[in-house]
Amino acid sequence: MKKPGKRPKQRLVVFCCENSAAKAAESAAGDPMLKGVEFVRVPCAGRVEIRHILKRIEAGAAVLALACPLDNCKYIHGNRRTLKRVDRVKQVLKDAGIEEGRVRMEFLSSVDPHKLVNVIKEAKRP
């Protein structure tokens, strides 16, 4: 039995571009904030499809897509493509009556492990 009044902890799936967030995650490994977070490593944020995000949301998770800052994509515009996809996912969530905050997108570079911890902290906040 769950304790009354306490919301069950939501699983957090983080898509990490291996050129930025994945490196930051390696640097931040061991930080308690990262505990229990599922990291999915992708070659570029542009690899993340809408269905990948929706599938995880359907499974009850919240999703955080982490990309390189705009104009810093190693593949030029992968991050911008994904930003648009995340907006479509938000529309889907809105349509379904689910809070749009279940999916978030943030931009950070490989040298910002503290920012990674920070955005994960934000994303975990219900």
Partner: peptide, 23 residues
């Protein structure tokens, strides 16, 4: 460059990037 942007864009799900499968 194996970035997978095309995979994400293809409306027919016709493209795969063998190096990165993320189901």
């Amino acid at each position: 460059q194996r970035c997978g942007i095309c995979v994400g864009e293809c409306p027919a799900r016709a493209i795969e990037l063998p190096a990165s499968v993320i189901e």
